[in-house]
Structure formats: structure tokens, C-alpha cells
Amino acid sequence: MIKINRERCMYCGGCVGVCPANALTLNETMLTVSEACNDCGICVKFCPVGALEV
């Protein structure tokens, strides 16, 4: 499951839109990742600030 660095996360939700497993959800400043995450790393490649890590 990917790791979220909360200090870096800008909670822009951009990663949610590229997650093929629909494992990411953003509500206000809270990005959550569900069990559906399969570590594909696409969100990590997208993140403009490097807040995500496989």
C-alpha cells in the first residue's frame, strides 16, 4: 500500500483521478488509501510535490 507524507500532501486530489484501483479518496485535507491499492505507483509518478511513496 502506498505511503502518504501528510506534511507534503497538498490535498489537490490529482492522484485520485489517476488511480486505476479507485483506492484513493480525498475529503478536504484528508487523503485516504484503501485496501484496494495494489502498489502500481501511478499516483507516485503523478504527484507534483512527491508526497506519495510505494
Binding site: G14, G17, V18, L26, F46
Partner: peptide, 26 residues
Amino acid sequence: DGVESKVGRWAGLKTLNRLTDYHSGI
């Protein structure tokens, strides 16, 4: 509901963005 669209996914529509067609903006 924007680029995150959950509505599209719940309704079975292909709202997933592909990295090759999706700018990373700052």
C-alpha cells in the same frame, strides 16, 4: 466532481485519467 470523479466510477463510466494525458500541475 472534478478530476477525482467518484460519480463516474460508481456509475461505471471510464473516468480514470491516463498519466500520458494528465498534466501534473503546480
